[in-house]
Nucleic acid binder design. Structure first.
Lengths: 230, 230
DNA sequence: CGCGGCTTTGATGTTCATCAAGTAAAGTGG
DNA sequence: CCACTTTACTTGATGAACATCAAAGCCGCG
């Protein structure tokens, strides 16, 4: 074994995600080039337009992937958690990021030199195949989500977001929204005013409880109906 | 050389797109497993939900990639021409198509057994890398287009479609729309009535001429302004 | 010739963005 | 720690943009 004792990658919970198919001797290669970094909530991990030099994936926390539309508006493409965020979107298609990534909760990101990854794609077919699959799935999900959201009406979109956080992120009927009202609006293509209006509406109808950023789902069935049929 | 005389793939104009990096001995492998098929305008090339068994790319013609939303409405994801249509969207992420493909002009499609492609990914790193790049670019473009369209108003969307056909497909100010009004609506997320209404508006304003499915752009500058600022 | 699908136009109502104004919360400097 | 400023949140009123409904003309096809 060539792996330095300091390297804990072999036991990383995220190893199976990507690096299952690589051999031990290749592994030290990755392990030596990797580094981790913490980001406080709100801090920027990468900015669209920057050069892409590293392959990165989220170890813990929550991030938003977004794109500047104009001076006063961002478009959020995806909210991502560990295991589903890896910067696969443009890393092989261009030398520059097409999207920014910002932590919306305290997060830890692991970086691996992109050249190392590329060389692995060249030399290890199984790894390449895994990469392609992961990439394909990631973009499939994003595209499907964007299309799905865009065809709902505003109430349906809000219901979607609330259920998304409850079911996919926090696994609880009660949670703290990691996004400001305005950011929610940027995610589901509407205005901040209407986000608030509809949240209040849901509150009056007894569908949810609101306390600042804390949301509690009270009538899940109703919320699901709204999500599906407006 | 192992390549059968009947195989013209070596001189195929689309060879550089994908198969530039493969060796001659691998080439006969592809060539033997490939077959071509013609599709008349309107005929279906593949249907969402079907098993994916082949890698395919468009040799000539024009297709729409679409997805059933409900009984009476389709969503068109992309209009694709040779060189930009290759079914990369879900082929590695799932065993079933997520989208349907239908010819909107007479088209010819070339098929290669998917297992052959997959084995090449495993054994030929440069090929894998090329595949990843192409895939990344394809999805980048689709996602960007969907987002771009969704933030325009209706007039902007119609302007976008007209300029798209003029500049990207037919390379002419005068062309025949390959899509029905309703299909245009399905592409840019609006109703068929409004497609017609806005086309008529453009006609009255002297921006375009309309004769059935034939469109002629008369005031390109104005059209571009509308596309950008609504 | 007549039928069904595609196209066109008009009238109507709903949905949503925008504007305005006020309140609460959070950060900033003395 | 308090006054101050700024930023986030909330509600209401208004108008514009867009979908829906209805009806009629057109065209190709059996």
């Amino acid at each position: 074994m060539d792996i330095p004792k300091s390297c804990n990658c072999q036991h990383c919970e995220l190893k199976p995600l990507f690096f299952d198919s690589i051999k031990d001797e290749e592994f030290s290669y990755i392990c030596n080039s990797k580094h981790e970094q913490s980001y406080a909530k709100g801090s920027v991990i990468c900015i669209e337009g920057e050069a892409i030099t590293e392959f990165m994936y989220l170890k813990s926390g929550l991030v938003k992937i977004h794109k500047r539309e104009n001076e006063r508006r961002d478009q959020i493409i995806k909210i991502a958690k560990p295991l589903d965020y890896v910067n696969l979107l443009s890393i092989f298609s261009d030398n520059f990021y097409h999207y920014s990534v910002t932590a919306i909760e305290d997060s830890v990101v692991c970086f691996v030199d992109l050249a190392v990854i590329k060389s692995l794609v060249h030399t290890n077919g199984a790894f390449a195949m895994g990469m392609i699959q992961k990439m394909n799935r990631t973009t499939d999900v994003i595209l499907q989500t964007v299309l799905e959201i865009s065809k709902k009406n505003l109430r349906g979109r809000i219901a979607y977001v609330l259920l998304y956080f409850a079911d996919q992120v926090y696994f609880s009927e009660k949670f703290e929204l990691p996004l400001a009202r305005k950011e929610i609006a940027e995610f589901i293509e509407m205005t901040a005013e209407n986000v608030i209006r509809i949240l209040s509406e849901f509150r009056k109808d007894g569908i949810i409880k609101i306390n600042g950023k804390t949301i509690e789902i009270e009538n899940r069935l109703r919320l699901q109906q709204i999500m599906e049929h407006g």
